[in-house]
Amino acid sequence: MRKAYLLCFLLLIFMLSGCSEKEKTVKFNVPKEISNIVISGEGTEVYFSGDKDINKDKNIVLDDTEAVEIVVNALKQGTPPSTGAMTTEGPSLQINLIYKDNTQDTFDFWFRPEEKTGRFEDNDGRVFMFKKQDISKIETLLRKNAEKK
């Protein structure tokens, strides 16, 4: 009799373990239509030629529709990091989303294209990792738009 109760108990536990809620995938939401994106911070200096001290505070403005769409899609496709170590260094850049209604959001932006890594932290403190293919697209945009200055 005990074996039957034990077997039923184990079967019940097995069934309940399979009924747990599925993990929710956290996605970054862009709440409004964006007019342009400004990338700023000390990390922009590598995209400008010339004296690093002079160019230290330059901003890179992405204002054409294609550039904005590439960055917005990269933001939306960002995923929470899997387990593992992340750098304790501060962000090298800030990304400023300027919406069509003239409001804006600014996020910390860690970007290391040479290592094919990039991440950002939203206003709620959630961290999202960029996909590798998006990192190369963003770097190309930063280089191209820094040259327009």
Rank of each mutant, 00 (worst) to 15 (best):
M1C: 08
R2D: 13
R2Q: 12
K3D: 14
A4R: 13
Y5T: 06
Y5A: 11
Y5L: 12
L6Y: 12
L6I: 13
L6F: 13
C8D: 03
C8R: 12
L11G: 15
L11D: 06
M15K: 07
M15S: 13
M15V: 14
L16N: 12
S17Q: 10
C19D: 01
K22M: 13
K22T: 09
T25A: 12
V26D: 05
V26G: 00
V26I: 14
K27S: 11
F28H: 09
F28C: 04
V30Y: 01
K32M: 10
E33G: 06
E33Q: 11
I34N: 01
N36Y: 15
N36V: 01
S40C: 07
S40R: 08
S40H: 05
G41A: 10
T44W: 05
E45T: 11
E45G: 06
V46H: 00
G50P: 03
G50Y: 07
G50W: 03
K52R: 12
K52A: 15
D53A: 15
D53K: 14
K56N: 05
D57T: 13
K58L: 14
I60N: 00
I60Y: 01
D63A: 09
D64N: 15
V68H: 07
I70E: 03
V72P: 00
N73T: 07
A74V: 03
L75A: 04
L75K: 04
L75S: 01
Q77S: 12
G78H: 01
G78C: 01
G78I: 01
T79H: 08
P80N: 09
P80W: 01
P81F: 04
P81K: 04
P81L: 06
S82N: 08
S82T: 10
M86I: 09
T87R: 08
G90N: 13
P91A: 15
P91N: 10
Q94H: 14
I95E: 03
N96Y: 04
L97M: 10
L97T: 00
I98Q: 08
Y99V: 10
K100A: 11
K100W: 05
K100T: 15
N102E: 14
T103K: 10
T106E: 13
F107H: 15
F109S: 02
F109C: 02
F109R: 02
W110K: 08
W110C: 02
F111K: 02
F111R: 00
R112E: 13
R112Y: 14
P113E: 03
P113T: 01
E115D: 11
E115Q: 13
K116R: 11
G118I: 00
R119G: 02
R119Q: 07
F120D: 02
E121M: 15
E121R: 12
D122M: 01
D122H: 05
N123M: 10
G125H: 07
G125R: 02
R126D: 12
V127Y: 04
F128I: 04
M129K: 06
M129Y: 09
K131Q: 14
Q133I: 07
D134A: 11
K137F: 03
I138K: 01
E139W: 03
E139N: 15
L142I: 05
L142R: 06
K144Y: 10
K144D: 13
K144T: 14
E147D: 14
K149L: 09
